[in-house]
């Protein structure tokens, strides 16, 4: 693999190549999320959550998607069930989130142990950080449940997952990796893209879909 002199310089300073790559990929992923929001109309939980989940999925490699999605879905399911149970107690916000987070981490522990029992140690051997990222998803989910209701939170979670999976494929795309390490300056293009996205006033794809029924009345 050919590295750009700048990248070689970074590596010589002791920054691992994987770290350089991920930091250079972050603008790409963030731009992807912005594109999904502004042009496609898929919202997700802001820009931070889907970007992080993308990298969490990467960290689960080589079985990124399988394990990542399992953990993601478990977190959301536990979040929903906990809300259902806690609702009747009328708890204040932070204690409620604390309880949800606790139940989520216990569940993940249970999943890891179960995986181990069935000789699937790949899951248990991943570092703790992607797991923690997944767990913080629970707070986002609970907050959205309270503000916008379960249905909206569920849809946003699904959208987050979709964007993260697309992001996962984008980041693990070999051509892009080679391109970025060889010509790291191409990430400057994301600024251009984001500037145009920031001035984009056209309808989103989901809005075309939303207005399609009455468009013929105009």
């Amino acid at each position: 693999m050919l590295y750009h002199p700048l990248v070689i310089f970074f590596i010589e300073q002791g920054v691992p190549v994987q770290t350089v790559l991920l930091l250079l990929m972050l603008p790409v992923v963030a731009t992807l999320v912005a594109f999904f929001r502004q042009v496609v109309g898929i919202k997700a939980f802001g820009i931070y959550t889907p970007s992080l989940i993308t990298f969490a999925l990467l960290a689960f490699d080589p079985n990124g998607l399988k394990y990542g999605i399992t953990i993601f879905v478990s977190v959301i399911l536990v979040g929903m069930v906990t809300r259902f149970i806690l609702n009747r107690f009328r708890l204040l916000y932070l204690p409620r989130v604390a309880i949800t987070l606790s139940i989520v981490s216990l569940t993940i522990l249970l999943i890891l142990v179960t995986g181990g029992m069935y000789q699937r140690t790949g899951l248990a051997s991943v570092s703790i950080f992607p797991l923690l990222i997944m767990i913080t998803l629970a707070e986002k989910f609970v907050a959205t449940q309270i503000e916008k209701g379960s249905r909206a939170a569920f849809i946003l979670a699904a959208e987050t997952l979709v964007i993260s999976i697309v992001g996962y494929f984008l980041v693990s795309w070999q051509t892009l990796t080679v391109l970025i390490l060889e010509y790291p300056w191409i990430i400057l293009f994301t600024f251009v893209i984001n500037f145009s996205l920031g001035k984009w006033t056209g309808l989103r794809i989901t809005e075309y879909f939303r207005f399609r029924k009455i468009a013929r009345h105009l």
Binding site: Q38, G41, K199, W200, T201, G202, L203, R204, E207, Y208, F211, R212, A215, R216, L218
Partner: peptide
């Protein structure tokens, strides 16, 4: 025709940025 007609609608992007 459909795309042309749809331009009469106000979308999120335009609402936020232009109005």
């Amino acid at each position: 025709e459909f795309f042309k007609k749809s331009q009469g609608f106000l979308g999120m992007n335009s609402r936020n940025l232009e109005y």
